[in-house]
Design a protein around this nucleic acid. Structure first.
Length: 303
DNA sequence: GCTATTTGACCGCC
DNA sequence: GGCGGTCAAATAGC
C-alpha cells in the first residue's frame, strides 16, 4: 500500500470510511441468518477501508510508519496476542479506599471509554455534576459527573466532559468511567436520534449546562453515548482528540496510541497503538482471524 | 424545605 | 510539588 504523507489525504480517507460505514449501518444490524454471509463480507469490506484509512492516518502521525511502508509484512507469529483485560486489571482492593475524600480515581482503560460528540448530555443516563476544574493545556474547564443513583444503587459510573472547540457546533470529549449498576432509566434515549444538539449547551467559556434530571427521568435502556446525528469535522479535529467513526465505533487516544472502541457494548475491539516505536493492531474476533484480506492489512500495519 | 449546582479544599498519583 | 479527581459546605433555584 502506498503511503501518502499528507495530513489532508489521511483525514479525507478517514472521513470517507466513516461515511461508508455510516451509510451501511442499517444492513449491518440485520440478524437474519440468511444475511450472514453478505453481512460478514460487507463488514469485512468496511473494516478493511477503515483499516486502510487508519493506516494512512498513522503514516501522517508518525513518520516511522511511512518509512516502513512497503516493507515486507511481518510474520504472523510476530503479531501480538489479543488484548487481555485481566492482564492490566486494577487492584480491586483500591476501589474501596477511593471513597475517601479527594482520592483520585485513575482512569481504568478496561472500564473507561472516550467519545467525541456534540451532545455530551444525551446518553440516556441520569448524571449529577459534582465538580469542574480547569485542566492544564486546555481552553475549557473539565466537568465531572457521577451517576445520580450512586448512593441509592451504588452505581460507580462517572463521566467527564471536556469541550474541545468553540465553533458554532462545539465538540465535546466525553470520558466514561466504570459501568452503571443502577439500572437507571430516562427518556433521554428518545432524543438521541432527534434532539441531540438541543439537549445541551455551553457558553463561550466552556460552561456546560444541562437539562434538569426531572425532565428526563423516564424509561430508557443503558445504551452508551453515541454521536449519531452528529458530524465529525475532520478539518478542525486534532489527532489528539477522540473520533467517532460511526454508531458502532469510536477512535480515541490512550496511553498507547489510538484505541478503537465498540460503542455498542463498550468492549474494546482493537487497538492501534505505538509502543516503543512499534505500531500494532489487535483485531476483534472472529472477523479478522480468518480473513486473509484483513490479515494482509494487519501485517502492513504491524511493523 | 428539598434538590441540584457551585466552588474551594482535600488527597492520591506521577 | 503539581496535577487532577472527588468531597462536601455553601449557595441557588424551585
Amino acid at each position: 500500500m502506498a503511503c501518502v504523507p499528507d495530513r489532508y489525504s489521511a483525514k479525507r480517507e478517514v472521513a470517507q470510511a466513516y461515511e461508508l460505514i455510516k451509510s451501511h449501518q442499517p444492513r449491518l444490524q440485520f440478524d437474519d441468518v440468511l444475511q450472514l454471509s453478505a453481512t460478514t463480507n460487507l463488514a469485512q469490506s468496511l473494516l478493511n477501508d477503515a483499516m486502510r484509512a487508519l493506516h494512512l492516518a498513522l503514516c501522517v502521525m508518525n513518520p516511522q510508519i511511512s518509512a516502513h511502508c512497503g516493507a515486507e509484512s511481518s510474520s504472523r507469529s510476530n503479531r501480538p496476542h489479543l488484548f487481555s483485560p485481566s492482564a492490566e486489571a486494577g487492584d480491586v482492593g483500591r476501589i474501596t479506599s477511593q471513597q475517601k475524600k479527594g482520592k483520585r480515581r485513575r482512569a481504568n482503560e478496561e472500564t473507561s471509554r472516550v467519545i467525541l460528540t456534540e451532545a455530551p448530555h444525551t446518553d440516556g443516563s441520569v448524571w449529577r455534576k459534582y465538580g469542574e476544574k480547569k485542566i492544564n493545556g486546555t481552553h475549557f474547564k473539565r466537568h465531572y459527573f457521577r451517576c445520580s443513583y450512586k448512593y441509592d444503587r451504588g452505581s460507580q459510573a462517572t463521566k467527564q466532559i471536556q469541550q474541545q472547540s468553540s465553533n458554532d457546533l462545539p465538540m465535546f470529549q466525553v470520558t466514561y468511567n466504570s459501568e452503571h449498576t443502577c439500572n437507571c432509566t430516562t427518556a433521554a434515549n428518545k432524543y438521541i436520534k432527534s434532539d441531540l444538539p438541543q439537549r445541551s449547551s455551553c457558553d463561550n467559556n466552556g460552561t456546560i449546562s444541562q437539562m434538569g434530571d426531572a425532565m428526563i427521568r423516564q424509561e430508557q435502556g443503558l445504551l452508551p453515548p453515541r454521536a449519531e446525528g452528529s458530524t465529525v469535522f475532520m478539518d478542525t479535529m486534532s489527532w489528539e482528540e477522540p473520533f467517532v467513526l460511526s454508531n458502532l465505533y469510536s477512535l480515541s487516544p490512550n496511553h498507547a496510541g489510538y484505541h478503537m472502541t465498540s460503542t455498542d457494548d463498550g468492549a474494546s475491539d482493537f487497538h492501534c497503538g505505538s509502543s516503543d516505536g512499534t505500531y500494532l493492531v489487535l483485531p476483534p474476533e472472529p472477523i479478522f482471524e480468518d480473513n486473509p484480506c484483513i490479515d494482509a492489512e494487519l501485517d502492513l500495519l504491524y511493523i
